[in-house]
Computed example of a mutant assay.
Amino acid sequence: MLGLFVLGFSVAHAADWPRQIADSRGVHTLDHKPLRIVSTSVTLTGSLLAIDAPVVASGATAPNNRVADENGFLRQWGEIAKQRKLARLYIGEPNAEAVAAQMPDLILISATGGDSALALYDQLSAIAPTLIINYDDKSWQTLLTQLGEITGQEQQAKARISDFNQQLAKVKQQMTLTPQPVSALVYNPAAHSANLWTADSAQGQLLSQLGFTLATLPEGLHASQSQGKRHDIIQLGGENLAAGLNGEALFLF
């Protein structure tokens, strides 16, 4: 099969459907353009909304905090979710029955992260075509392009990326960079630990586009893998926390 290979995901380019898509579990055939997409990953949902994909329901995170609204949807797209009447599947723990109730014709799950429903893959794939999306090793632009091809929203994805590139060029002209290199992280004060963004992460790649350089970890520094092997973060805690934050500036996400 001739097709386009994008970081672990190949999508057949044909004028019409069906499309054959390969992920880590094999090749899947989508007979038609999806009309009812369920996203079990709250991280992926924002990208789907951005390209006007027909996502009807989404998993959620803990509600009513600095990152999530009362529905557990991320604040940067929560209002759009309300306008489009996006249903909340569940908070945290994945639930196959909640997914089935939405009668999806496509289910998307993330390969890694706290919002991954990978453990329910067999149950979900019995409901509808289910694709595994790995977002921990690519820029948001690559992810958006990937989702656009899967959902038939290629042109919308291109338009969003084009708009961003124009804004990026304007912002770069107005910026004065901090001393380089920098350490970019999410800090957890309760555990006295941090997740350090890598150059492979969407956050790290965005900083690079803006002109920043990420600091390199000292040799021999031990990092935790309590969240499994991931490309986008390095887990630092305990005595390694201070040593690992060796940039000339710290960026807290």
Rank of each mutant, 00 (worst) to 15 (best):
G204A: 07
P104C: 06
Q209M: 13
L2C: 01
P189Q: 05
L168C: 10
T45C: 04
S41Q: 10
S201N: 06
V6N: 07
E239T: 12
Q173R: 15
P18K: 06
M103K: 14
L252P: 02
L214H: 01
D23W: 01
S110H: 01
G244P: 00
A194C: 10
T112H: 11
L35I: 05
R88H: 04
D69T: 02
G3T: 10
P94E: 04
Q146E: 13
G238P: 12
G113V: 08
G3I: 02
Q83A: 14
K158D: 14
D31I: 01
T112V: 14
P181F: 02
H192T: 13
L44T: 06
L236C: 08
I161K: 05
I150M: 07
D16E: 15
T40V: 11
A62M: 07
A249E: 04
Q180V: 06
F5E: 13
N165S: 10
S201Q: 09
A190G: 11
N165I: 03
A117D: 09
A68L: 03
K170M: 12
I107R: 10
Y121L: 11
G238D: 07
V56A: 06
K82W: 08
I91G: 11
Q146K: 08
A68G: 10
I150Y: 08
A81L: 00
A202N: 12
A15I: 07
Q155K: 12
T130N: 12
L124C: 13
I233Q: 07
P54D: 12
Q173I: 04
A101L: 05
A68H: 14
L144N: 02
S183P: 05
Q146N: 02
D232W: 07
L118A: 08
N134G: 09
T198V: 11
L124P: 08
S116E: 08
M1G: 11
Y90D: 10
L143D: 00
D122Q: 12
I234H: 07
P179Q: 14
T213A: 13
K138R: 15
L217P: 06
E97R: 12
E149K: 08
L118F: 14
Q225I: 05
A223N: 08
K229P: 09
Q141N: 08
Q180L: 15
T176M: 02
Q203A: 09
Q83L: 07
T45M: 06
A117P: 09
K170I: 09
S224W: 04
A242Y: 11
L206K: 14
N95H: 14
A199Q: 08
K172L: 05
N246C: 09
I80V: 13
L35Y: 02
W77Q: 00
W17V: 04
Q102E: 07
W77M: 00
E97C: 11
P63H: 05
A62D: 03
E79N: 10
L144K: 01
V67W: 04
L7H: 15
P94F: 00
T142F: 06
I91A: 04
G247S: 04
D137Y: 08
T151L: 00
A128C: 15
E70A: 14
L207P: 01
E239D: 14
N188L: 15
L89H: 03
Q225E: 06
H231C: 07
V67E: 11
A15M: 13
S110C: 02
I37A: 04
P129S: 09
S47F: 13
G72A: 06
L120K: 10
I109S: 00
